[in-house]
């Protein structure tokens, strides 16, 4: 078996405000080139995991225990100089909202090349050449115009393509995609999903795909980790999890999704009984921990 790119081990995190667990005993392992869906409703802890890996947790959240190992080295205890080398080069981010993730006052070209220059030490000319190559990879048709544009002159989908190009620019080993399609039109969403998948395959990059949408997971993820209230409920290969869900919550979630093959049938919310059982189970897990 190959060495995992990322292994999160027994990670727990506390809210500094009220002392409740936002993550408890979360473990997951990511092999090189694997696309992992991190799924859960708001507050399930999926973004917290992503932020913890990137070292950008807000001051209101404190790590209470566990390890985040990147190729064997723990990120939580790594020296700042080591982290600076890893983050932005081996681990990069595709942010959620392409509106706020590009600096409105700077041209696309400058924003696309400054990472290449700062992290990879390229000179201006080779960074520019690489930027054009990347824009070609993410299928931007008139790269010369886009290179000299300001963000407000591009569509949301176009901006997200730039951000994907930026994330894959340093040939990272792990890309964290934080709901990159949530802020986009449905028609654009599909293209962006395909693009992330294609870029990931071309670069052999492992991806953590944070989403609340099981439909997205089914389309592009090799494996899934389903979270609820900071706990891992179920994880495994996507096909297994969707076809043979073991946990009642998973089953209910799958049933709650829209069925385009049966348009007459309305949406089925997750039954209250499932939540009650889930909360009981989590309560038992937390008392067992103590």
């Amino acid at each position: 078996m190959t060495k995992p790119v990322l292994s999160v081990e027994a990670l727990s995190a506390l809210s500094a405000r009220n002392g409740t667990y936002v993550l408890s005993d979360v473990s997951l392992t990511l092999q090189p080139g694997e696309v992992r869906g991190l799924v859960g409703e708001s507050g399930a802890g999926k973004s917290t995991i992503a932020k913890a890996v990137l070292g950008i947790l807000p001051s209101t959240i404190r790590i209470a225990g566990g390890w985040i190992r990147f190729e064997g080295d723990d990120l939580l205890t790594a020296r700042p100089s080591v982290l600076r080398n890893l983050l932005g080069r081996d681990i990069t981010l595709i942010p959620q909202d392409p509106q706020t993730a590009l600096n409105p006052a700077r041209r696309i070209g400058a924003q696309l090349t400054d990472g290449l220059r700062l992290k990879l030490g390229m000179n201006a000319a080779s960074a520019r050449a690489r930027a054009f190559q990347l824009m070609d990879e993410v299928q931007i048709r008139d790269p010369a115009r886009v290179f000299d544009s300001f963000p407000h002159q591009l569509s949301g989908g176009m901006r997200q393509r730039i951000l994907i190009a930026q994330a894959f620019a340093p040939n990272p080993k792990l890309v964290i995609a934080d709901e990159p399609t949530t802020a986009l039109d449905v028609t654009v969403q599909k293209e962006i999903l395909r693009l992330v998948r294609r870029m990931q395959e071309a670069h052999g990059t492992a991806v953590i795909f944070v989403t609340h949408d099981l439909g997205v997971v089914a389309k592009i993820c090799d494996s899934v980790t389903l979270l609820y209230s900071g706990h891992v409920i179920e994880q495994g290969a996507t096909a297994d999890l969707i076809e043979r869900p073991r946990h009642a919550y998973t089953r209910a979630l799958i049933a709650a999704g829209p069925r385009y093959d049966r348009p007459g049938q309305g949406l089925q919310p997750v039954p209250e009984r499932v939540f009650a059982d889930l909360r009981k189970e989590i309560g038992q897990r937390e008392t067992a921990d103590v």
Partner: peptide
């Protein structure tokens, strides 16, 4: 606290450059 500053930090910009180069003009 905008995302472009966060990304700038990931791209390896110093705090001084983030303030003067990224945040100031906006």
């Amino acid at each position: 606290v905008q995302d472009y500053v966060l990304l700038g930090r990931l791209k390896g910009m110093s705090e001084m450059r983030l303030v003067l180069g990224e945040a100031l003009r906006n």
